[in-house]
Computed example of a mutant assay.
Amino acid sequence: MGCSDDEPLQRRTLLAVLILNALLAVGLGFGGLAADSSALLANALDNASDAAVYLISFLAVGRALVWKTRAARVSGIMLLILAAGVLIDVVRRAIMGAEPVGWTMMGLALVAAAINLACLILIRRQKSKDVNMKAAETFSLNDFASNGGILLAGGLVMWLDQSWPDLLVGLIVAAIGLKGGVEILREAREVERAR
């Protein structure tokens, strides 16, 4: 099978967003633990899942359509698993209690938003109809939206001196993950049916 003109660019783009998301996952994970924030930990898990998905998508570039749809399906399933993990963490923190640090949440949300916006711009420049590139775009858009929620939650945590805004955003991140996972699985199924 020959290599199309956009495959090397797709590989470079996916590798760039893979590295950015892996680094962001580590930073948000440490920040979430330090700030006792469910929202930041949810975002860290989300970015770690995204990095794994970008690796799968990177490996799918240039392969047969059946391989690409399987890779997209794995991406969708991983996102659903992430959402379930976030829901469990939010329930645990609601029961056990948490004292999130609002200013840490806000600072890391701004950094994450800038990185996720850069990833989204890189992916959208591709103008690709490839199912894995569409999945990558969904992930980056979801992450960017989640960062806005964490920024708001951090401000509310500081203003109200309560943890519920952090838990609420954790729930919203889980809902975004569920929606994104379902969309990716639906699109992979439609591509498979169209073959």
Rank of each mutant, 00 (worst) to 15 (best):
M105A: 05
T104C: 04
G85M: 11
D89C: 00
A83Y: 03
L79F: 06
L82C: 14
G97Q: 01
I81W: 06
V101W: 06
G85R: 04
M106V: 11
A83C: 08
L87T: 07
L87W: 11
V86H: 00
V90D: 03
G97A: 01
A83P: 13
A94H: 14
I88S: 02
I77Y: 03
A94D: 11
V91I: 12
I77G: 02
E99P: 00
G102F: 09
W103S: 11
G102D: 03
G97L: 00
M105H: 10
V91M: 06
L87S: 07
L79M: 15
L80F: 00
G107T: 14
D89M: 07
A84S: 13
G102I: 06
P100R: 07
V91A: 09
G102Q: 06
G85P: 03
V86D: 10
V90W: 07
G102N: 05
M105G: 12
E99I: 05
L82H: 14
L79Q: 15
A98S: 15
L79W: 06
V91D: 03
L79D: 04
L80Y: 00
G85L: 14
L82E: 14
L87A: 06
I95L: 12
M78A: 15
W103H: 12
L80E: 11
M78E: 11
I88L: 11
M78K: 09
P100Q: 05
I81S: 13
V101K: 10
T104D: 01
M96V: 14
M96G: 02
L82Q: 15
A84L: 15
L82N: 14
E99N: 03
E99C: 00
V86A: 07
V91L: 12
A98E: 11
G107V: 09
G97D: 03
G76Q: 03
T104F: 09
D89F: 06
A83I: 13
P100A: 02
L82K: 14
L87C: 07
E99T: 13
R92I: 08
A94S: 15
V86F: 00
T104Q: 10
G97C: 01
A84C: 11
I77W: 05
I95S: 05
G76Y: 00
A94F: 13
A84Y: 04
A84I: 14
L82F: 15
M78T: 14
M78Y: 09
G76A: 10
L82P: 02
R92C: 01
A98T: 15
I81K: 11
G107P: 11
G107Q: 10
R93A: 11
M105F: 10
A94K: 13
I77A: 10
G76N: 11
M106N: 08
G102W: 09
G97E: 02
R93T: 07
V86G: 03
P100Y: 06
V90R: 09
V90T: 07
M106I: 09
I88R: 02
R93P: 07
M105C: 07
A94R: 15
L82W: 07
W103I: 09
R92V: 08
D89P: 02
V91P: 03
A83N: 06
G76S: 12
D89G: 02
M106D: 02
V91T: 05
G76C: 10
V86M: 07
I77L: 10
M78L: 15
I81F: 08
M78G: 13
L87V: 12
D89T: 04
D89Y: 05
